[in-house]
């Protein structure tokens, strides 16, 4: 089975590792540059995107990781992971990988008291998932090559219409919610299938 690197600089890396292991993948925690050798896929967990971005820079991991992704290594980012993957981050100059042609808005639903759970359909999955949104971001623009996998109804959040919360661009998968906090491993399976 494939060796998946889970970025373990900060955040909910343990939960991703558990989900991937339960599906039979080999998992390695990535904390330093040499740990990237030999990984076939990458997961960037939820956490604080500013913290993870700074550590990626300080540890000299940002450029090598970006290159690996541009060379075709499959990657999945949830929440902070999604933010780090996006090319544009509204009102922020923070370090990022910038490989996903999309614009993201951080803390788009408000503060922690506005965090929520909801069921939502995801393109490619038969049944809806339980979306756990914690100080979650939203995608406000996507490029032509980006496939939208899920949207959330903004009416309960004081908005209108629907906004994008899951996307795929080639071998890049990103969600603004946290499947790793639920027992449902279908999105991790979806990601592992991208390695095939």
């Amino acid at each position: 089975m494939a060796l998946i690197g889970v970025l373990a600089l900060q955040g909910a890396f343990r939960e991703h590792a558990r989900a991937l292991t339960s599906l039979g993948a080999d998992v390695r925690e990535l904390r330093q540059l040499p740990h990237l050798d030999g990984i076939e896929g990458l997961v960037i967990p939820g956490g604080e995107s500013t913290t993870i971005g700074k550590l990626l820079m300080d540890l000299g991991m940002m450029d090598p990781l970006r290159q690996r992704i541009l060379d075709g290594m499959p990657v999945y980012g949830s929440c902070a992971g999604l933010i780090l993957l996006c090319k544009d981050i509204e009102d922020s100059e923070q370090p990022r990988l910038g490989v996903l042609d999309a614009t993201v808005r951080r803390n788009a639903f408000g503060r922690q008291v506005d965090s929520f759970e909801t069921t939502l359909p995801v393109k490619g999955l038969n049944e809806p998932v339980q979306g756990v949104f914690i100080r979650a971001p939203l995608i406000t623009r996507v490029g032509a090559d980006v496939d939208v996998l899920a949207r959330v109804d903004m009416a309960p959040h004081g908005g209108t219409g629907e906004e994008i919360v899951a996307v795929r661009q080639g071998r890049i998968l990103a969600t603004s919610f946290h499947p790793e906090l639920t027992p449902d491993t279908r999105l991790h399976r979806y990601f592992l299938d991208m390695l095939a």
Partner: peptide, 17 residues
Amino acid sequence: QGSLRLKTGLAEMLKGG
């Protein structure tokens, strides 16, 4: 909103920090 999973979930996101 305010579920235990959302409350403990934010703490999970703070780990390693």
